[in-house]
Design a protein around this nucleic acid. Sequence first.
DNA 1: GTGGTCTAGACCACC
DNA 2: GTGGTCTAGACCACT
Lengths: 126, 126, 126, 126
Amino acid sequence: MLLSLDFSSDVPIYLQIRNQIVVGISNGTLSPGEKLPTIRNLALEIGINTMTVNRAYQQLKQDGYIITDRRNGACISKEFYTSTTLSEKALASLKIVISEAKLNGIPKYEFINLCSKMYEGNMPEV
Amino acid sequence: MLLSLDFSSDVPIYLQIRNQIVVGISNGTLSPGEKLPTIRNLALEIGINTMTVNRAYQQLKQDGYIITDRRNGACISKEFYTSTTLSEKALASLKIVISEAKLNGIPKYEFINLCSKMYEGNMPEV
Amino acid sequence: MLLSLDFSSDVPIYLQIRNQIVVGISNGTLSPGEKLPTIRNLALEIGINTMTVNRAYQQLKQDGYIITDRRNGACISKEFYTSTTLSEKALASLKIVISEAKLNGIPKYEFINLCSKMYEGNMPEV
Amino acid sequence: MLLSLDFSSDVPIYLQIRNQIVVGISNGTLSPGEKLPTIRNLALEIGINTMTVNRAYQQLKQDGYIITDRRNGACISKEFYTSTTLSEKALASLKIVISEAKLNGIPKYEFINLCSKMYEGNMPEV
DNA sequence: GTGGTCTAGACCACC
DNA sequence: GTGGTCTAGACCACT
């Protein structure tokens, strides 16, 4: 799993890590049960502070995406909390994205098409 | 137009204002050409500083959603910049939302259905 | 002479008027000695305040581009103050324009070429 | 890098800072990758408010001339957005400068000569 | 330490 | 009246 961080982004680094891991799981790049690097190793590899990685992992743990075990370090959850609805945050994000898409003149079928492709795992690089 | 701000959110107030106005335009709650409240009035009404409202308006202006006329204050643009693609930011947001939806166990048809409804203007309250 | 004003521009209206008249003289659209509309008429025509037009005319007068006569109203000067150097303001503007051109990757010959054409009267519309 | 600000100018301070940094990069006074002073330090040094410096930096960031790294503060971009044309604003400025030059009686070859020198980095002090 | 945000008040330019 | 700018402080999030 390769993380690509943008230090000049306005998205905090810990969140970038968290998000990319979530996307990775959803993509299949990371499999349920798979072991994650230790906080120290990951921090060293990326060249950032352990605190930052720690925070990302805590976030992921809290969201139920990973499990941390004192002996084994962290690994991807084998079962995710399922729900019939999106989280409030996700819904708020989606609301804004859709609004901007409409105002940008992207027709509905095209937007739906994009979502459909992305859901199938066809995630754009950006 | 009613704004509902969350002062304890990690989303800055000026951005919340910006976002809600974008959603409002897309919704039809705000119509192209419609006048926005003056910076001072809106600040007073919400109970925040004029600078904060100012910043929200500047952002909107820069994004092409409103125009400010030296004489009349601000109003919604009558023409929006159209593009065939989503902005990078929007795309990145969408990527995360979809990933979370998948991990939450929301099936594709349901997610698409949600997007479809939202695109039609049926925005959930949250 | 047609003025095209942008009320949502950050350039004050009186300055837009002043600038367009300067460009017009340089272009040949306005000839030395030619009469300008009265302040009141111009204001009425454009739909702005007389104060604004007044200020534009005062600016032009002060810069030596027009002459105002109590009886005849204003007209373009027949002789302009000549100098071997640009005004400080113009020089400062030019400095910034050239810097931006360089940083935008516009090569020297191309920039010079553009200036040359523009000097010959080939002014772009914008 | 020394900034010389004119507090009585009609050009806002934040813009003066922004412009001088742009000129500085183009000049070579500031090199790509070079670190800029922190907002606080620069504000202290100049004797103005941090908000004002902040705004200048935001502008520069938005224009792609600097990047701010969450960890290190701000530094000059290493790659600039390149384009084949001048920005609309720059073109409008240039139009006015050239018009004034013509009306001031500055002959074409002299104006071109000035531009040429300035492009080469020979910026006049004013 | 850094940048980002916000406040409460002020002043100015423009129209 | 409007928006635009600036100040002198404060607090917060991130690293």
